[in-house]
Design a protein around this nucleic acid. Structure first.
Lengths: 375, 375
DNA sequence: TTGTAAGCGTTATCAT
DNA sequence: ATGATAACGCTTACAA
């Protein structure tokens, strides 16, 4: 095994000895080069290089009281999320690496892992934005995941100077305890009575614009919402759809098409029921692109053509939405920008929060018109 | 600004006082729950929760000698890489977050950031595999970037228990000093006389298979290589193309189409020159998908149709290669699997390296046939 | 300009 | 079962 190396890591003491100076000088050579004479500085740096000295971030963090790292945390829940088509990533093959012979294609699970319906998703693009900004700021990023138990969260909190989080239902209360000591940013969470910062998208505006498009351009007024209004995001989108219809004096059909189970399997019976009852809507408005992917599969399985027989729309604007057939009309969130905003807030480069409290940054969403609505 | 919170982080001392026990008991409550009576353990855990105690990873790391974190490092160079279409990500807008009003679409740079030609690339998919495996292993991941100076590298090394790296030319020697103390994995680097582990792809096999396809299926024997054979990967691919041609007794054209500058700008003159000289090849074999993207643009600018007038192929099999028009025939690397392999090596869950030394894991590549070759 | 020494918050070894 | 206490490697006054 690779872990547990032979050689002990060199420390300031080793370098100090090698360079014939005190440990303070070693430290200064790196942190306060100006406080040292050129000669000693060079001597120290040289010794450090020779020894392969790498300052211990742990020791530095302890002494300084901050690690310098910004964290991005995803709860397990997220990866086990009920979105259709979010594959469980357990059960992947783990080919032996110690045989010395090349690893065959069939041992890589590449088909599963390269599926654009599974990557990059919303979280992946937000993460990328976070990374880009941290890179620009010169700050390392720590990625972690875990349950939303106190212990797991605390472990993550203990490693970073600030933490951005994709929320699980239990998130806010558990985190509240840590808010006083480090800044915390929640993505896609409705405002609440806590001290967390927030970065989110204008779900209502995006959904209303989408519904308006369907009504105005495609005369579609009988809309069925696909998704379970539980997560804050989905609730907002659902509400906005209903609100836009109501504002226009259009009566909306009751209930939603529930798509909480993985894959299209669960949608097929519901689609069949709608067909049988002669209640097919003019358009399925999905809570997310993921839901739309699954629905497209279910509709195809039942021989329905999109957009000819029925319109389908998504939400998020992930890359995968460009790759469906037909390409998906959806609402794009500026995910990278959202990730960047979170990083700036945590790093303290975003100015002061308005009204003294926490940041609540809302981004505009934008309708992306493609083939699936009939355009 | 968010950084620099009001409240000091609670420590073991605070919890000990709150729970009326010694600091040792606090530590035990978390690390060795069995060594404590149920009563005290609960009392401690309760106090910890009440106080919002999060164990300091820095202190733990110091005491234990390991941080538990696995690192993935990218040199700045990589992001400034000479690949066509790799945009400089500096110069992005940074909208004010403190105004309290929604952030407009035009302030997000979303068009640039969501370009599938820029994300996800090779490094992004490898990174994802690394993350997936670390997540499965319950290990946090640290992402960092920086120059390949001794100081920058050492800083990263000091933060992790093991490090995977996308190489820059200077990488190996700088890192060699640290190899004795922590395990290091290099991606896509030819074997050399050092102690680093390696995870790479069978470039030669992939390229030979691709060239064979072009010759056998499309009778294309006049191939032009696009890319500058400098990086190890590109050299291997170039060499393999020449070797396959030679093995078949086919004379290859001298030189390469150089595509080291950003964008298609630089390719247009070269394409023009080929046209003018009546020396257009039957196929352009590009060193990477990125090169192919740029070339497709250049060819279109010159009014040449792919694959009718000339064939184009890529290498890597990134998502973007599915989205070009025509879709790109390319060689896919199992990038996620490569990232996962690196994580397993670093975590020590990959067994022992063969022949006692370092791991050198080679993955099979696979030709992905799409429209751009005429199929 | 350089050295001495006191923390920083854990873990782990001894005692009790 | 619990409590003292000595590391762990670095930063940073303060001395020299």
């Amino acid at each position: 095994m690779a872990e547990g190396q032979a050689t002990r890591r060199p420390t300031v003491y080793d370098v100090a000895q090698e360079a014939n100076v005190s440990i303070a000088s070693v430290s200064f050579a790196f942190r306060r080069p100006d406080k040292l004479s050129d000669a000693t500085r060079e001597r120290v740096l040289d010794a450090a290089r020779r020894l392969g000295y790498a300052p211990s971030a742990a020791a530095r963090g302890l002494a300084r009281g901050r690690t310098g790292i910004l964290g991005l945390h995803a709860f397990d829940l997220l990866l086990e999320r009920p979105d259709p088509l979010a594959r469980p990533l357990s059960g992947l093959k783990s080919p032996r690496l110690d045989t010395g012979s090349p690893i065959g294609w069939d041992d890589t699970d590449d088909e599963v892992l390269s599926d654009p319906r599974a990557f990059p998703l919303y979280v992946d693009e937000v993460q990328r934005g976070f990374e880009l900004e941290c890179w620009a700021l010169g700050r390392p990023v720590m990625l972690s995941s875990g349950s939303d138990t106190d212990v797991s969260v605390a472990d993550t909190v203990g490693r970073v100077d600030g933490l951005a989080i994709f929320p699980s239902p239990q998130t806010a209360p558990t985190l509240a305890r840590h808010s006083p000591s480090i800044p915390i940013v929640l993505f896609s969470t409705a405002p609440a009575d806590d001290a967390h910062h927030r970065v989110r998208v204008d779900n209502a505006g995006g959904m209303r614009a989408l519904v308006s498009h369907l009504i105005d351009e495609h005369a579609a007024t009988d809309l069925a919402f696909v998704g379970r209004p539980e997560a804050a995001d989905v609730v907002e989108r659902h509400d906005a759809m209903l609100a836009e219809l109501q504002d226009r004096g259009i009566r909306s059909r009751p209930g939603v098409v529930d798509a909480t189970v993985r894959g299209a399997d669960d949608l097929v019976p519901q689609v069949r029921a709608l067909i049988a009852a002669g209640r097919m809507p003019q358009a399925f408005v999905c809570a997310s692109d993921q839901h739309a992917f699954a629905l497209l599969d279910a509709l195809e399985a039942e021989g329905l053509r999109v957009p000819d027989d029925v319109v389908v729309t998504g939400f998020d604007g992930t890359l995968g939405s460009r790759l469906t057939t037909p390409a998906l009309t959806t609402v794009r969130q500026p995910m990278e920008a959202m990730g960047r905003a979170a990083a700036r807030i945590l790093a303290g480069t975003a100015g002061a929060a308005p009204s003294g409290g926490a940041f609540d940054v809302v981004f505009e969403a934008r309708v992306v018109v493609r083939r699936s609505c009939g355009c």
